[in-house]
Design a protein around this nucleic acid. Structure first.
Lengths: 153, 153
DNA sequence: CCAAGCTATATAGCTTGGCTATACACTAGT
DNA sequence: ACTAGTGTATAGCCAAGCTATATAGCTTGG
């Protein structure tokens, strides 16, 4: 019996959050999901305004403002003045930010390696496909939210 | 071309956290990942002591104590005195807790339904297998290889 | 061309989940 | 019985999330 979508989604979210906790403990890193979610979005989508970044990451604008402030202090992102609209900023990931994301990716593999040691190539292929399926949910779509006019600049 | 495990894991975690944020916004629910992660563990593993629950959920013991207090106030779990060790408590999910988890599962399906509308049966099978693979990482007692039996039956 | 309103970001203040350090209460070993 | 060990709770901190609101800059109608 194949599981119902509702069960699959719940199990997927729950399991992944447990994985996240394991990664946090094993790496001893304090870097939060919010940080690498943000960096990851900037990497795949390119420079974004604070508001668009908030929508992409699905958090409120004040939350993203706060996150960006922290990231900018750590020099993982930089703010670029928007010449067309001086109220706005373009947020761009810095080389240091890219390096941090890459490093975290490696630590993930190291810390979760043992847990996945028994997976064969076929299992990895399944995870790969599933991950692609999930990632494709977010790519270049008329994002449910009505406005989003200028995501690509 | 298959991605490297390190990329797969990073993308998996990031995508799922974005899904989590979408679910939070669409359902308008304030219930946090920590809550349903805890309820989900209690459902699959049965009654657990606070310490064991903390280990299963991969948070510190004080964090779990705090979570359990909140859950108990909402009557989603109850504390059962451990007759063998009067320092300890067994934490059990209540019918109300089970109902809440079930309801959340349904809301997940509702709120994420549109996003996954274009998936065919094959795609869902992939997600199902991947989810089983992930879930099997945590079945601490019945060791590895739980995935092979768990997918289809 | 300027007041009124709309929009982009920032600030304030709150809640909760996460942590470490430590206290307290009970169990167990010698 | 004393000491060491273990299970839970408390205290106090920080970060990530929220809503409500302020500030600053665009835009537009009269």
């Amino acid at each position: 019996m194949t599981s119902q979508p509702t069960d699959i989604l719940e199990s997927l979210l729950t399991s992944t959050h447990r994985l996240t906790r394991i990664a946090a403990q094993e790496t001893g890193r304090t870097t939060s999901p919010a940080v690498w979610r943000t960096l990851s979005i900037l990497t795949t989508d390119g420079d974004l305004r604070v508001g668009d970044l908030a929508r992409a990451s699905r958090v409120s604008q004040p939350t993203m403002t706060k996150l960006v402030r922290g990231l900018a202090e750590d020099e993982l992102v930089k703010r670029i003045a928007d010449t067309d609209d001086s109220r706005a900023w373009l947020i761009a990931i810095t080389p240091k930010g890219t390096a941090a994301l890459t490093e975290w990716r490696g630590q993930l593999a190291d810390s979760l390696g043992d847990l996945f040691a028994d997976l064969d190539d076929d299992d990895w292929a399944v995870l790969d496909r599933a991950t692609s399926l999930l990632a494709s949910r977010f790519s270049s779509r008329t994002d449910v939210r009505a406005d989003t006019e200028a995501v690509f600049a």
